[in-house]
Nucleic acid binder design. Structure first.
Lengths: 234, 234
DNA sequence: ACCCGGTTTTAGGTATGCCTAAACTATTAG
DNA sequence: CTAATAGTTTAGGCATACCTAAAACCGGGT
């Protein structure tokens, strides 16, 4: 009954590369392999905190395994097989984040680092048990979609960046798309979490004045690019 | 607030060696560093499923880190520092086993493999949260004692091997001390789990006739050495 | 058309943790 | 007391996954 008979055993590093190629190559709301773009060596090197030369080496290895299509000087794309692996890793990650939050009381801003380490080490049995415990959730605590057991990414409701709201508009935080711990801590502190209501009060040169959790803040522009907002009634 | 400031970052392999040196060097009921015996290269090689040459190499490295005392041809012992690390790993392992059993519904015979992989990858925060969720348990699902947060091994009630009971004697299974999955599966199947009552019916050349969970079995001698039994009323 | 600077790749090196094969040590049997 | 044998260590290799330094590429601006 093992449905992933064909899955070769990959190293932690290899899984991480595939996951990052997926994340970097996907549009913020993209969901299928066809909608991904090629990812550069540099981008990967930055994200993985590794030198570009190391990335080149790994990409060659992944290309040999037919998990990516790689042409020198032109960036990488996932193959169908590589996409599957990336989604599996992403499913582990996001299920773990959700479980840590719901079952163990971690703050939504704390779950990333722990999940990052565990995602490569849990069995399919573990994945299944936490998914069942959670009732097969569709989104993690950051608002990111969790790939299904069949490895499809659920479509989300339409969202816009917080930066794109006009003064006076309100919305519900749908997703906080940051990997940066400091930014997450700040958002958590401000009560700007998925599910919360926000209102844009005013656009200023240094940022955006918003109201969230009953308080007003001036949010630097960079941070308003990271928060995705859905219609209030939607 | 980090209480383990001094703890150097060790590799997974190094942690595993330290753990096995502790387990192999401890008497079945032993609990302090003074009561441990030296462990041979061969024993370690067998347990870790690795060649003796590899063990020698690792022991040299651990000796340099002052985690073990090692003299060529004479086996290894843990130092105070190595003992601490080993207990920490053991605590992670046994807490995880307990958590998998209690919180996620794993069978007591299934938890070992999953815990084995996860023990090296959980944070102190994770350890703390599952310990709290479990109410700071003193024993894992196999009946093995869990080192406390302060890294002391709790004393157990006195136990004897099932093999040592006279015909007609009864007792409570206190501990099933096996790492072998097949043996565990068998015990689980027979209902011979920690907490269950057993009675020795008869000693025979090929094994011991016992009654457990209302049924009678002939248990091979080797397996009766693995099961530890406490007084019924004790 | 060409040059410059950033990006990417090549070449060569490190550390870990395992392997095999061969040399060595210790202990036990005769 | 020596010789066989079981246990151990040394020597030399391999794969992974990183690194630095230097060479190769490529696209934009003049």
């Amino acid at each position: 009954m093992n449905t992933s008979l064909s899955r070769p055993v990959l190293s932690e590093a290899q899984e991480d590369y595939l996951k990052q190629i997926l994340l970097l190559g996907s549009a913020p709301e993209g969901s299928s392999l066809e909608h991904t773009t090629a990812v550069s060596t540099q981008e990967l090197a930055d994200r993985m905190e590794v030198k570009p030369a190391s990335v080149t080496g790994m990409l060659k290895k992944l290309a040999e395994l037919a998990l990516v299509e790689y042409e020198a000087y032109k960036g990488v794309r996932l193959t169908e097989a590589g996409y599957k692996v990336a989604l599996e890793v992403l499913r582990h990650h996001r299920l773990l984040e959700t479980y840590l939050h719901q079952a163990l009381g971690y703050g939504w801003e704390e779950v990333h680092a722990e999940a990052e380490r565990l995602e490569h080490h849990i069995s399919e049995a573990f994945e299944k048990r936490i998914a069942e415990w959670l009732g097969h959730p569709s989104h993690d605590p950051h608002g990111d979609p969790i790939p299904t057991a069949e490895l499809h990414l659920p479509e989300g409701v339409p969202t816009r960046r917080l930066a794109a709201l006009e003064a006076g508009e309100r919305g519900l935080v749908a997703r906080v798309g940051s990997q940066d711990q400091d930014a997450l801590n700040l958002f958590a502190h401000l009560g700007l979490r998925p599910g919360a209501q926000v209102e844009v009060l005013e656009h200023m040169p240094e940022g955006v004045r918003v109201r969230a959790a009953g308080e007003r803040y001036l949010l630097p522009v960079a941070l308003t690019q990271i928060v995705w907002v859905a219609e209030v009634g939607g």
